[in-house]
Each structure stands twice: as C-alpha cells, then as structure tokens.
C-alpha cells in the first residue's frame, strides 16, 4: 500500500494526553500506525472504529486503550472501504434525509395517536380514580368563585325552579344508573342564557336560559346535556388532559415561560372540549329517547341559544361564555351549532 493511502491523524496512547501526529494505514490485514516515537502494527480484528457521526472525529482504537483520532473522513472511508468495513444500518439511516423524513412521520404519528386516543383514554381511566372528596372540593370552590364574581341569586319563580328540578329527577338515565346531581338556579346578566355542570354534579341554570322558553321539556333537554358532562366525568378529564398537554408543551419548549407555551397548549386542548360537547349531546339524545322524549327538544334549545347570543356560532348555551364567531371549526371550543343540531335530528 502506498503512502498516499495513509491517513494523517493524532495518536494517543490512552495513558497520557500527549498528542502524537501519525499516519494510519492498512497492510496485509494489519492496522499500521507510524509517527515520531510511535510504531504499531495490530491485526485488524483487534482494532475498533467508532461509527461515523457527521463531521466529528472518528476513533480507531486498540485493545490497550490507545487510539487514533481521525478527522480526514474521506481518507478514512477509503481505507475502511478497502478492508470491507461497512457502516452500521443506523449510521447509514442517519445520513439520509429521506429516512429523517420517515422519522418525522413516525414521531408525528405517535404524537397524533397519543393526542387523539391515548390521552383521552388515560384521562378517562384516571378520572375514575380521582377521589370524590377532591372533586367535591374543587367544584365547591369553583361555584364559590362564580357566585362571588359572575352569578347572582336567582330571581326566577321558585315554583318553576322546584318543578323543573323535580321533573328532571324523575327522568331515568340511558343506562339506568343513578348519577348524583343537584340543579341550581342563578341570575347571570354577564353570562346570558347558559347552563353548565360542575364535576361534582351541580348543574347551574341561568335565569336568562329559563326566560328563553316556557316549555320545561326544552330545559330538561339542556339539563340532560349537562348531566352527560357529569356522567362522562368531562370536568375532571378536561383538567387531567389539560395538565398533561400543558406539562408536555412546557417541558418540550424548555422552562423559559409558561406564557408562550400557554397558547399552543390552549389550541391543543380546544379539541377535547369539542369532543366533550359532542359526547354530551349524544348522551342527552339517548336520555331523552329513553324517557320517550325527543332529542329535538335540545336541538330547538340550541337554536334558541344561538339566536339569543346573536351569532352564527355562539357558546351554544352550554358551558361557554366565549363567542367563537369567525373562528375555523378546528380552533373553536364548540362544534358549530348547526352541526350539533343536525346531529341531534339524525334518527
């Protein structure tokens, strides 16, 4: 082998930090290192080569810990090629943009599957294990806060209120199970017509919602929707899912600021609440049918709510105070009302 096939590199003996400029070559199945004060000849089987890692130096090491640090990649590749050495499959993959694209696809698939299926499933499982006392405390605190800032005592007729609660209590749930709940009435000029459920089973109905209709059956439709949220533990699941999404986003982006990370996290969480609205609608439809009532009652009420909020896609009277008008469907926390009404009217 000619001197031209030798690779210039640094040799270290593995014991001291002294650098020896040498050349590395291969002669009849032996690695040969030659330089000032260094002369080694080792069988190739006893020599190990570190994998190619971009532009970083590669180490050609001997059994006693001595090694050559090689930076001339082309020359080393030629030398290795002559010995029949082949890069490992992972190293070859790391060098290809096409494989990198496949890698992106796999990672994206994992994120999407986790987000769409794994996390909601896990939150559902975990929600069942959250102690009732914790849910009770959380809900009571929320209601106290709302009573202090947003809600006022109900001015609606106590008879109608009592009547409604009693009628709703007489309805049976689709699967016949008893779900602990309590219907409360409040005046809420700031919120307008609305109803929402706390995880503990407390369902708040605003006077403004009562004023939308004289037909109690329609209100029962809304209550059934809210009971759906309670039955499916949406409140607790939402808290769990949001925490996981928030933690992941914060961790991934580094610890800098929870403010910037709050935006992507909020966008990601919006989907979960839309799913919950659909689930609650389905629950209400089944419950109404189960009690020989029509899902149309809720559909009519959704229409009334939409008109009352005066927008193409209002918070639809359930849970939400926000006005989602003008937002594309994937950004909005509620499915479009028209879509929900249509779903309820489907037989």
């Amino acid at each position: 082998m000619s001197a031209a096939d030798r690779v210039a590199c640094d040799y270290f003996d593995g014991r001291s930090s002294k650098r020896h400029p040498v050349t590395l070559g291969v002669e009849d199945g032996h690695a040969v290192v030659e330089g000032e004060g260094v002369s080694r000849r080792e069988p190739l089987q006893a020599v190990r080569v570190s994998e190619r890692m971009g532009g970083a130096a590669r180490m050609v090491s001997f059994a006693d810990g001595a090694f050559c640090e090689v930076r001339d990649h082309d020359a080393l590749d030629a030398l290795l090629h002559a010995t029949g050495y082949r890069d490992s499959i992972v190293v070859r993959m790391q060098n290809r943009w096409r494989v990198a694209a496949a890698g992106i696809a796999i990672c994206a698939a994992l994120v999407v599957v986790t987000y769409l299926f794994v996390l909601p499933w896990a939150a559902d499982q975990a929600a069942a294990h959250v102690p009732a006392s914790a849910i009770e405390t959380m809900s009571n605190r929320t209601l106290e806060m709302l009573d202090e800032h947003v809600l006022e005592p109900s001015k609606a007729s106590p008879e109608r209120a009592r009547d409604l609660a009693a009628k709703f209590a007489r309805l049976s749930t689709p699967d016949g199970s008893k779900i602990a709940h309590r219907v409360e009435f409040r005046s809420a000029p700031l919120v307008g017509p609305n109803a929402f459920a706390l995880p503990s089973g407390t369902i708040i109905v605003t006077d403004e919602l009562l004023a939308l209709t004289d037909r109690d059956d329609e209100i029962l439709g809304v209550l059934a929707h809210e009971l759906g949220h309670v039955a499916r533990r949406h409140g607790v699941r939402q808290v769990l899912q949001s925490s996981v999404v928030g933690l992941f986003v914060t961790w991934y982006l580094g610890d800098v600021s929870s403010l910037l990370t709050a935006v992507p996290a909020a966008l990601l969480e919006a989907r979960y609440s839309r799913d919950h609205e659909r689930e609650a609608d389905e629950y209400a439809a089944r419950m109404l049918r189960h009690n020989a009532m029509s899902p149309e009652l809720l559909a009519v009420m959704l229409g009334r709510l939409e008109r009352a909020h005066g927008s193409g896609d209002a918070g639809s009277g359930t849970d939400d105070k926000s006005n989602d008008r003008g937002l594309p469907e994937y950004l909005s926390t509620h499915p479009a009302t028209a879509e929900r009404i249509e779903a309820l009217r489907r037989p």
Binding site: A56, Q94, W97, A100, A102, G103
Partner: peptide
C-alpha cells in the same frame, strides 16, 4: 463546538423514531 444542526437533526430524529418503534 463544531456540531452542526442539520447533521444532529438526522441523528436525533432517526434515534427518536427507533426509540418509538
């Protein structure tokens, strides 16, 4: 430090994908 983003990106994504698989 002589590392390079494009190079490291490929190492990172391939190893991440292998970890998932």
């Amino acid at each position: 430090f002589t590392g390079n983003g494009a190079e490291y990106f490929r190492i990172w994504i391939v190893n991440l994908a292998l970890t998932i698989v």
